[in-house]
C-alpha cells in the first residue's frame, strides 16, 4: 500500500508528466477550451494510458523480447495505442452511448498524444514490472488530469487579461505554464519527506 501511494504521488506531483517531463503538452494549450473538454480529454488519456500499458507490457515481454526484436517497440506501441483507441471508441458507442459526448469524442486525440507513447517507452526503458507499470500509468494519467484542470482555469484568466499584443495566445500560455511548472518543482523533495526513502 505504501508503494502504491509512493508511485502515485511521485507520478502526479513530483515527476509530473506534463510540467516536469514535458510530454503531452499540446492538449494543454489546445483541447482545454472549457472545463468539460478538459475533463473529457484527461479521462480519455487516463483510460488509454492504463489500457495501453496493460496491452503493451505482455506484447513487449512475451513477444518482442523472446524474438530478439525489442528495438521494434516504437512501431508496435504506436499500433497498439491506435488499435486500443479504435476499440475503446467502438465500445463506448455501443455499450455506453451516454458517455459519447463526454469521453468518446476525445479518444481519437489520445492516439497522437506523446504522453501515452512516452509512458510506454519509459516503462520499457526502466524495465518496470507489470504491477509497477500499471500503477505508474494511472499516476501519469492523474497527473495529466490535474495539470489540465489547473491550467484550464489559468488559461481563461490569461485570455481575459490585458497583455501586450505579441504575447497574446501561445506565448502567454507558455509563460503561464512555466510559472505553474515552477510551483510543481517546489514539490521535488516531497517523497523524501513523506516516506523517508
Amino acid at each position: 500500500m505504501k508503494d502504491f501511494f509512493y508511485i502515485i504521488i511521485g507520478a502526479v506531483l513530483v515527476n509530473n508528466v506534463v510540467l516536469i517531463r514535458t510530454m503531452g503538452v499540446c492538449p494543454l494549450f489546445g483541447a482545454s477550451g472549457d472545463r468539460r473538454a478538459a475533463h473529457g480529454m484527461s479521462a480519455a488519456v487516463c483510460l488509454i494510458m492504463v489500457l495501453s500499458t496493460a496491452a503493451a507490457w505482455p506484447v513487449y515481454r512475451l513477444v518482442l523480447v523472446p524474438l530478439g526484436i525489442g528495438y521494434m517497440e516504437t512501431v508496435v506501441f504506436v499500433l497498439i495505442i491506435g488499435g486500443l483507441v479504435q476499440l475503446a471508441e467502438t465500445a463506448i458507442e455501443s455499450f455506453f452511448p451516454a458517455l459519447r459526448e463526454k469521453l468518446g469524442i476525445y479518444l481519437p486525440l489520445t492516439a497522437s498524444n506523446c504522453a501515452v507513447l512516452g509512458l510506454l517507452e519509459q516503462n520499457v526503458r526502466e524495465g518496470r514490472e507489470l504491477g509497477y507499470s500499471l500503477i505508474s500509468a494511472l499516476g501519469c494519467g492523474l497527473g495529466f488530469w490535474l495539470v489540465m484542470y489547473l491550467f484550464e482555469g489559468i488559461k481563461s484568466r490569461v485570455d481575459r487579461s490585458d497583455i501586450p499584443e505579441s504575447f497574446k495566445g501561445m506565448p502567454s500560455y507558455l509563460i503561464a505554464a512555466a510559472i505553474l511548472g515552477l510551483s510543481f518543482m517546489g514539490l521535488t523533495g516531497l517523497l523524501d519527506g513523506l516516506f523517508g526513502m
Binding site: L19, I20, R21, T22, L174, I175, A177, A178, I179, G181, L182, M185
Partner: peptide, 8 residues
C-alpha cells in the same frame, strides 16, 4: 535547464 525554463 529545467522544464519551466524551457517553457519560458
Amino acid at each position: 535547464l529545467f522544464a519551466p525554463g524551457g517553457l519560458f
